[in-house]
Lab assay of single mutants.
Amino acid sequence: LRTVEMKKGPTDSLGISIAGGVGSPLGDVPIFIAMMHPTGVAAQTQKLRVGDRIVTICGTSTEGMTHTQAVNLLKNASGSIEMQV
């Protein structure tokens, strides 16, 4: 596991798309980074990659989380965001 910290302002975009989660079209698979926009906050860290499994978001485990719950957690996060992948 590695921990990645990002700074995100209220109008900034992380610039990632995620897939997976409980009840997702892919089945109940762990949440992972499906796409990254090169100008997004996540890409700027140069520490995240497409395919990385997201284990925690700001200390909250993604295990058993639906896709929608994970998306909302990421969208609503601002300031210092910590992810374990």
Rank of each mutant, 00 (worst) to 15 (best):
residue 27 G to L: 00
residue 33 I to H: 02
residue 71 V to N: 15
residue 76 N to D: 12
residue 51 G to L: 04
residue 45 T to D: 06
residue 20 G to M: 00
residue 82 E to G: 06
residue 76 N to Y: 08
residue 23 G to K: 02
residue 30 P to R: 02
residue 3 T to K: 12
residue 38 P to A: 07
residue 63 E to I: 10
residue 1 L to I: 15
residue 33 I to C: 05
residue 3 T to G: 03
residue 26 L to R: 07
residue 49 R to C: 12
residue 56 T to E: 09
residue 65 M to H: 04
residue 54 I to G: 02
residue 77 A to V: 12
residue 11 T to G: 15
residue 7 K to M: 13
residue 24 S to C: 06
residue 2 R to C: 11
residue 50 V to H: 03
residue 75 K to R: 13
residue 38 P to W: 03
residue 81 I to G: 03
residue 8 K to I: 15
residue 51 G to M: 04
residue 81 I to D: 02
residue 5 E to F: 15
residue 79 G to A: 06
residue 6 M to T: 03
residue 61 S to R: 10
residue 34 A to R: 11
residue 58 C to A: 11
residue 59 G to H: 07
residue 77 A to T: 13
residue 30 P to T: 01
residue 49 R to K: 14
residue 41 V to N: 02
residue 1 L to D: 05
residue 16 I to D: 03
residue 31 I to L: 14
residue 49 R to N: 14
residue 66 T to P: 05
residue 57 I to P: 05
residue 24 S to P: 02
residue 18 I to A: 01
residue 3 T to A: 05
residue 78 S to I: 09
residue 5 E to T: 15
residue 21 G to N: 00
residue 12 D to H: 10
residue 73 L to M: 13
residue 43 A to N: 09
residue 79 G to V: 04
residue 65 M to K: 02
residue 46 Q to N: 15
residue 12 D to K: 09
residue 46 Q to I: 03
residue 27 G to R: 03
residue 43 A to E: 05
residue 69 Q to R: 09
residue 21 G to D: 03
residue 55 V to L: 13
residue 25 P to D: 13
residue 35 M to T: 15
residue 10 P to V: 11
residue 55 V to Y: 09
residue 38 P to Q: 08
residue 68 T to R: 13
residue 77 A to R: 11
residue 40 G to Q: 00
residue 44 Q to I: 06
residue 20 G to H: 03
residue 37 H to K: 13
residue 6 M to R: 01
residue 69 Q to G: 08
residue 10 P to G: 09
residue 34 A to W: 07
residue 27 G to E: 04
residue 50 V to A: 08
residue 28 D to Y: 01
residue 36 M to Q: 01
residue 67 H to N: 14
residue 40 G to E: 03
residue 41 V to P: 07
residue 28 D to T: 05
residue 84 Q to E: 13
residue 11 T to V: 09
residue 45 T to A: 08
residue 84 Q to D: 05
residue 14 L to G: 02
residue 40 G to W: 00
residue 23 G to R: 05
residue 12 D to I: 00
residue 52 D to L: 03
residue 8 K to D: 00
residue 27 G to T: 04
residue 35 M to Y: 15
residue 18 I to T: 03
residue 57 I to S: 04
residue 10 P to D: 12
residue 51 G to P: 00
residue 85 V to P: 07
residue 9 G to E: 09
residue 53 R to W: 08
residue 15 G to H: 00
residue 1 L to G: 05
residue 68 T to E: 14
residue 70 A to Q: 06
residue 9 G to N: 09
residue 26 L to Y: 12
residue 81 I to L: 08
residue 21 G to Q: 02
residue 13 S to A: 13
residue 54 I to Q: 05
residue 7 K to P: 03
residue 80 S to A: 11
residue 75 K to I: 07
residue 50 V to K: 07
residue 10 P to Q: 08
residue 61 S to P: 14
residue 43 A to P: 03
residue 48 L to N: 01
residue 55 V to P: 04
residue 27 G to K: 06
residue 39 T to D: 15
residue 22 V to R: 12
residue 71 V to E: 15
residue 72 N to Q: 13
residue 8 K to E: 06
residue 38 P to E: 10
residue 60 T to A: 11
residue 62 T to R: 02
residue 41 V to Y: 07
residue 26 L to G: 11
residue 63 E to W: 06
residue 58 C to K: 08
residue 55 V to D: 07
residue 48 L to T: 01
residue 60 T to M: 13
residue 23 G to I: 00
residue 43 A to L: 03
residue 39 T to P: 04
residue 76 N to K: 13
residue 17 S to F: 11
residue 69 Q to I: 05
residue 80 S to T: 15
residue 23 G to E: 05
residue 50 V to Q: 09
residue 65 M to G: 03
residue 21 G to L: 01
residue 83 M to L: 15
residue 77 A to D: 06
residue 6 M to F: 11
residue 55 V to H: 11
residue 44 Q to P: 03
residue 22 V to E: 07
residue 8 K to Y: 08
residue 70 A to M: 06
residue 45 T to W: 02
residue 38 P to G: 06
residue 20 G to Y: 03
residue 61 S to E: 08
residue 72 N to M: 10
residue 69 Q to N: 09
residue 15 G to N: 03
residue 62 T to I: 06
residue 58 C to Q: 14
residue 21 G to F: 00
residue 33 I to F: 00
residue 28 D to K: 06
residue 9 G to Y: 07
residue 77 A to E: 08
residue 49 R to A: 13
residue 2 R to L: 14
residue 37 H to E: 15
residue 5 E to V: 15
residue 28 D to H: 07
residue 16 I to Y: 02
residue 52 D to E: 04
residue 59 G to I: 05
residue 53 R to Y: 11
residue 24 S to Y: 08
residue 15 G to A: 02
residue 11 T to W: 12
residue 62 T to C: 09
residue 64 G to Y: 06
residue 71 V to T: 14
residue 73 L to S: 06
residue 26 L to N: 12
residue 63 E to C: 09
residue 47 K to T: 07
residue 41 V to D: 01
residue 13 S to P: 10
residue 21 G to E: 00
residue 73 L to H: 08
residue 34 A to S: 15
residue 25 P to M: 09
residue 26 L to E: 14
residue 63 E to K: 12
residue 41 V to Q: 09
residue 29 V to N: 01
residue 50 V to T: 08
residue 14 L to H: 00
residue 15 G to Q: 00
residue 84 Q to M: 07
residue 17 S to L: 12
residue 33 I to P: 05
residue 32 F to P: 06
residue 2 R to Q: 13
residue 2 R to D: 01
residue 44 Q to A: 13
residue 25 P to A: 12
residue 72 N to C: 10
residue 73 L to R: 07
residue 36 M to W: 01
residue 44 Q to D: 07
residue 46 Q to W: 02
residue 17 S to V: 15
residue 52 D to K: 01
residue 44 Q to F: 00
residue 79 G to P: 07
residue 16 I to T: 01
residue 8 K to M: 15
residue 6 M to P: 00
residue 65 M to E: 01
residue 23 G to W: 03
residue 19 A to C: 09
residue 83 M to C: 07
residue 54 I to T: 01
residue 66 T to E: 07
residue 74 L to R: 02
residue 84 Q to T: 14
residue 29 V to G: 08
residue 29 V to I: 12
residue 72 N to R: 11
residue 49 R to I: 07
residue 14 L to R: 03
residue 36 M to V: 12
residue 5 E to L: 15
residue 29 V to W: 05
residue 60 T to K: 15
residue 81 I to H: 06
residue 65 M to C: 03
residue 41 V to F: 06
residue 69 Q to A: 11
residue 31 I to N: 00
residue 12 D to C: 08
residue 9 G to C: 07
residue 26 L to S: 10
residue 80 S to M: 12
residue 5 E to W: 10
residue 75 K to W: 07
residue 7 K to N: 14
residue 47 K to Q: 14
residue 59 G to S: 05
residue 60 T to D: 10
residue 48 L to A: 04
residue 7 K to V: 14
residue 47 K to V: 08
residue 2 R to A: 08
residue 13 S to F: 14
residue 48 L to F: 07
residue 33 I to Q: 05
residue 62 T to N: 05
residue 85 V to C: 06
residue 30 P to V: 02
residue 35 M to Q: 15
residue 80 S to W: 11
residue 27 G to P: 01
residue 11 T to R: 14
residue 16 I to L: 14
residue 82 E to Y: 10
residue 24 S to F: 05
residue 80 S to L: 12
residue 8 K to T: 10
residue 60 T to R: 15
residue 56 T to H: 05
residue 3 T to V: 10
residue 13 S to W: 11
residue 84 Q to V: 12
residue 79 G to W: 01
residue 28 D to N: 11
residue 17 S to R: 15
residue 23 G to M: 01
residue 20 G to I: 01
residue 10 P to K: 12
residue 33 I to G: 02
residue 54 I to R: 02
residue 51 G to I: 00
residue 9 G to M: 08
residue 71 V to K: 13
residue 72 N to L: 08
residue 78 S to K: 14
residue 54 I to V: 11
residue 7 K to L: 12
residue 1 L to H: 07
residue 20 G to D: 04
residue 60 T to Y: 13
residue 45 T to V: 03
residue 80 S to Q: 12
residue 30 P to A: 05
residue 25 P to V: 10
residue 23 G to N: 09
residue 66 T to Q: 06
residue 34 A to L: 07
residue 11 T to P: 06
residue 62 T to K: 01
residue 34 A to G: 11
residue 53 R to A: 11
residue 41 V to G: 03
residue 26 L to D: 14
residue 53 R to K: 12
residue 55 V to Q: 09
residue 79 G to E: 10
residue 56 T to W: 00
residue 41 V to H: 06
residue 20 G to C: 05
residue 54 I to M: 04
residue 64 G to F: 07
residue 21 G to C: 00
residue 18 I to D: 00
residue 78 S to H: 12
residue 62 T to H: 00
residue 83 M to N: 06
residue 37 H to Y: 09
residue 67 H to M: 12
residue 21 G to R: 01
residue 19 A to Y: 01
residue 24 S to I: 00
residue 35 M to V: 10
residue 61 S to M: 03
residue 78 S to V: 12
residue 85 V to G: 03
residue 78 S to P: 10
residue 10 P to F: 09
residue 49 R to E: 12
residue 31 I to Y: 01
residue 85 V to Q: 00
residue 49 R to P: 02
residue 31 I to C: 06
residue 32 F to S: 11
residue 61 S to L: 06
residue 84 Q to C: 10
residue 66 T to H: 10
residue 14 L to N: 00
residue 3 T to M: 07
residue 39 T to S: 14
residue 57 I to M: 08
residue 80 S to E: 12
residue 10 P to A: 12
residue 76 N to E: 12
residue 63 E to Q: 13
residue 51 G to V: 01
residue 37 H to V: 10
residue 71 V to C: 14
residue 8 K to R: 11
residue 21 G to H: 04
residue 76 N to L: 09
residue 68 T to W: 11
residue 70 A to W: 00
residue 30 P to N: 05
residue 45 T to C: 10
residue 44 Q to L: 11
residue 78 S to C: 12
residue 6 M to I: 12
residue 44 Q to C: 09
residue 41 V to L: 14
residue 48 L to D: 08
residue 24 S to M: 00
residue 82 E to W: 11
residue 3 T to P: 02
residue 36 M to P: 01
residue 23 G to V: 01
residue 24 S to N: 05
residue 78 S to N: 14
residue 2 R to N: 06
residue 83 M to K: 02
residue 36 M to E: 05
residue 3 T to Q: 07
residue 63 E to S: 11
residue 21 G to V: 01
residue 57 I to L: 10
residue 46 Q to G: 15
residue 18 I to K: 04
residue 82 E to D: 09
residue 30 P to M: 00
residue 76 N to P: 02
